[in-house]
Design a protein around this nucleic acid. Structure first.
Lengths: 161, 161
DNA sequence: CAATAATAGTTATACAGCATAACTTTATTT
DNA sequence: AAATAAAGTTATGCTGTATAACTATTATTG
């Protein structure tokens, strides 16, 4: 506002916005960084017609054959009703099977089809490549430390005391 | 109740789900960690009737008085139409003012009211306290490294080559 | 064993976050 | 002056997430 027209820049605070207060928050940093990572992941998975949620579900089913929808929902930290539509989609695309559990006819045993496993392989390889590029500016030691820190935040050692 | 090994557990992956493949992805770690942080932030801001978006907007307006909605939307990395409803809410609650810019009658100059600045102070203090607890298990050096790494990911030095 | 409670999956629904198109009003450009 | 661009707005749709209520089945228990 008080910038005289000495500088060729037309507007003062136009492009330089002060977010120093927000930068004090780790949540702010995480949100901004995660936005970038998520955008990259979404773009990476798009050629495979997968979103983060469908990819995550597919991977967990391939790696944990036979698990139930409830278990999967718990693992993915989403509500059961929301998982149903994910399974509907993966099943419709013949990437997974919903087999009835003989010992508990309420539950489904989720397994990946051959097509599902193939898609898993391709998508996982693509994700690895893209993530490698995303982290190319961070050395291995730091990368490990970041992963560990993120995990420690996730675990949440903030006792109630 | 711990299950003794008298019986071969019918379902092996019952409570222990293997997410090793996903753990190779930083995005997965970030999402899970961010979920925790976000939940904490949401809970922290709830007493002030603020969400992450409204809090972020309020802070940026207080710290950058006079900025326009377009500038704010750019700073927050959200679309202008979505910012409108945020400003509607903050204005309705008399936390900010939308003053017409004399030199450009299309734009609004956003400023915080006294109530807005007071809420900013209280909310920011609360956020700081909660984040401190959230990061209590991480030493200062690691914390700095994590922030730096997150920022470097955000900036995205991944060239197009 | 029958009544009850709990669990797995489902449907319907609602809300927040994010994106795009199209519009009005005002500024800028040509 | 006409065309173009920018700021803000409205309408709309899609994704992700959450809850209530329902069914079918299993587990509990009195």
């Amino acid at each position: 506002m008080k910038r005289p027209e000495l500088s060729p820049v037309p507007d003062p605070a136009a492009d330089q916005i002060n977010d120093a207060t927000l930068r004090l928050s780790v949540g702010y940093h995480m949100k901004r960084a995660f936005n970038v990572v998520q955008a990259d992941l979404v773009a990476t998975l798009k050629p495979f017609d997968l979103r983060m949620l469908t990819y995550t579900a597919l991977v967990l089913i391939v790696d944990n054959p036979g698990l139930s929808q409830s278990q999967l929902a718990a693992a993915m930290d989403i509500e059961r009703p929301n998982l149903v539509v994910l399974m509907d989609e993966l099943e419709r695309r013949a990437l997974i099977n919903r087999d009835r559990v003989p010992t508990d006819r309420r539950a489904y045993a989720l397994t990946a089809t051959l097509a599902g496993r193939r898609l898993y392989e391709k998508a996982t390889a693509a994700v690895a490549v893209h993530e490698k590029r995303l982290l190319s500016g961070i050395d291995e030691a730091t990368r490990t430390a970041v992963i560990a820190a993120l995990h420690s935040i996730e675990i949440g050692q903030t006792g109630e005391g």
